[in-house]
Amino acid sequence: MLDTLGIEGLLGVVLIVLSIVLLTWHDPIVGAAVMILVAGFALVAKGIADSVMRLFGMK
């Protein structure tokens, strides 16, 4: 995972997870909504990345 994300990407993932944990600890319903939102963004980003890779013939 480190070779694909790099140090900055891995640090970003850690910060996102820590912020969601902190928010969930404070308000579980809002924390759950934010987790669903982040998962949706991740799926959209994966779809865009797959489309671009197909466009360049790499997949």
Rank of each mutant, 00 (worst) to 15 (best):
D50Q: 09
G47P: 05
V38D: 03
L11P: 02
M58T: 13
D27Y: 04
D27E: 14
G31A: 02
L15V: 04
F56T: 13
L10I: 13
L11Y: 03
V34K: 00
K46T: 15
L11W: 00
V34N: 00
V52G: 11
A39Q: 01
A39G: 07
L23D: 04
G6F: 01
P28N: 00
G6R: 01
A33N: 08
D50L: 10
V34D: 02
D3K: 13
L15K: 08
H26Q: 11
I16L: 11
V44F: 04
I16F: 05
L5K: 06
V44A: 08
L5G: 05
M53H: 10
F41R: 07
V21I: 10
A42H: 01
L11A: 11
L23A: 09
V14Q: 12
G6L: 00
I29G: 02
L18K: 11
A49T: 11
K59P: 09
D27L: 03
G12Y: 14
M53I: 08
V30R: 12
L43N: 02
M35L: 13
A45R: 05
L18T: 10
H26C: 05
H26P: 00
A45P: 00
I7Y: 04
D50F: 03
G9P: 02
I20K: 02
F41G: 14
L10K: 08
K46R: 14
G31R: 04
G40M: 04
V17D: 04
V30Y: 10
L43V: 08
L37G: 11
L43C: 04
M58R: 15
M58H: 14
M53P: 01
G40S: 05
A49P: 04
K59Y: 15
V30L: 13
L22F: 08
A42Q: 02
T24E: 06
A42W: 03
L43E: 06
M1E: 11
A49D: 09
M35T: 14
G9M: 00
S51D: 09
I29R: 13
S19F: 13
M1S: 13
H26G: 01
L23I: 14
A42G: 03
L5S: 05
L18P: 06
A33K: 07
L37F: 08
D27I: 06
S51H: 10
G12N: 15
L15P: 02
L37Y: 05
D50G: 08
L2Q: 13
G47M: 12
L55G: 15
L2D: 12
W25A: 12
L55W: 15
D3F: 14
L37E: 06
D50M: 10
A45N: 05
K59T: 15
L5F: 12
R54S: 04
G47W: 07
V17K: 14
I29Y: 11
L37M: 09
G9H: 00
V14M: 12
H26A: 12
D3L: 12
M1P: 08
V44M: 04
V30K: 13
I29F: 11
G47R: 10
I20E: 06
A49S: 10
